[in-house]
Write a protein that binds this DNA or RNA. Structure first.
Lengths: 217, 217
DNA sequence: CTGCCATTGTTAAAAAATTCACTATGCATC
DNA sequence: GATGCATAGTGAATTTTTTAACAATGGCAG
């Protein structure tokens, strides 16, 4: 019998669960009803044990000898991750990336609703993007409190990321996703995630270089 | 005396090195000449030993009793990562995100030059964005070979990511950075990185939920 | 209802990554 | 030139994560 665990759940597990959800969704669309950890692992590029272990942190979702029911598993993971609800989000920094996110429908599809956008550039304030009017950043703290916002997205230039974070915290936000390529400092109780695509460019560049070097040996 | 190591370098090390470079750049702009692993660690939110170990994979860059010379260290890391050159890049999928990346100047600043953009939507073909004309994806393989492109960025919808990847591979590309939320399958010799911001949204949502649950106990 | 098969859940082992603790060494001071 | 101090580099210990192996069990066939 499974019992609730209070083990710390590895970060990597969470990000793999997100991948599983994605793949399960695709399968569901394709009409696949049942999947084994073996097959799912193959699709996600991980080890089957890994999947079973990841899921074990949250409960028993499979049927021995059969596998996992696709829809059921997807729902179970979504619930485990706290995605069976909507989250109000605000965005700070209406540059290229900010605009792209405002117009991106995947966020909404996943339950993240951007309810306000802020920028400190007077030329941008008042502009309407994807049905939202850009507001002055100074109004952020009050707005987020009024609108019950829990998550902030930072898409400012790096040098303004910390200031954006401060406004967000003043507004009582609990989590920040920072797209700016700079670290921000926050108290322990705020969870911060960095989306650092340059980082990934670096990794690819490095891997290619390495392969070339190895190839020469 | 340090000697070249052929140990496998952890992925996490690479992504931390990218962070170090960022922070070192900021320091350099602020006129800071020397930094200790202790201080740098604090800024990057990691352990000082971690920094020293990460650097040790590539060489000895510090001065005992003093620390690291900021400019020198930054250059050393850039060189170690293979960033002391420019990389030709193509982008597939000119949606919101694709456009944002095309207009984003950080890529170029880091030596990643987007030399062509592709999309399969006839309405987008011919459009000019950030000085680049959008081309039909069918032309991709020839173009990338002609232009000596090594890295491809995928910003298509998830269901078209694999197709984009196939075109890129046909074009002889060596690395892919996939912004679409779907896994792609590639042979071993292609290095693939996933930039999955939804993933990070999930993580933040999960962390907030967890804290609330713990708070109730 | 019994027994077999497939596949999960779980425990143990292995591998990898991180942190600690200490050694080595460059610089500054006297 | 010797001494002390600060901090890098490094090997060992610890912790974390991943993988492997296997025991448990639900479903299905007969």
């Amino acid at each position: 019998m499974h019992q609730l665990k209070f083990e710390r759940i590895p970060r990597a597990t969470i990000s793999r669960l997100a991948v599983y959800v994605q793949e399960l969704e695709v399968m569901e669309q394709q009409g696949i009803k049942v999947i084994s950890s073996e097959k799912l692992a193959q699709l996600c590029g991980v080890n089957p044990s890994q999947i079973r272990k990841d899921l074990a942190y949250f409960g028993e979702f499979g049927v021995r000898g059969v596998g996992y029911y696709v829809h059921e598993l997807r729902e179970a993971i979504r619930q485990s991750l706290g995605l069976d609800r909507t989250w109000n989000v605000v965005l700070v920094g209406v540059g290229n990336l900010g605009r792209a996110l405002l117009r991106h429908n995947l966020l909404r599809k996943r339950g993240f609703v951007i309810v306000a956008a802020f920028d400190c550039d007077p030329f941008k304030i008042g502009e309407e993007i994807a049905g939202l009017e850009v507001n002055c950043t100074s109004k952020l703290p009050k707005s987020t409190r009024d609108m019950n916002v829990e998550i902030g997205i930072i898409t400012t230039p790096p040098e303004r990321a910390q200031r954006a974070a401060n406004y967000l915290m003043e507004g009582g936000i609990k989590g920040i996703v920072n797209f700016a390529p700079s670290r921000i400092s926050t108290p322990e109780n705020i969870s911060v995630e960095y989306v650092d695509f340059i980082n990934h460019m670096f990794s690819v560049a490095f891997n290619i270089t390495q392969k070339q070097i190895r190839g020469l040996l």
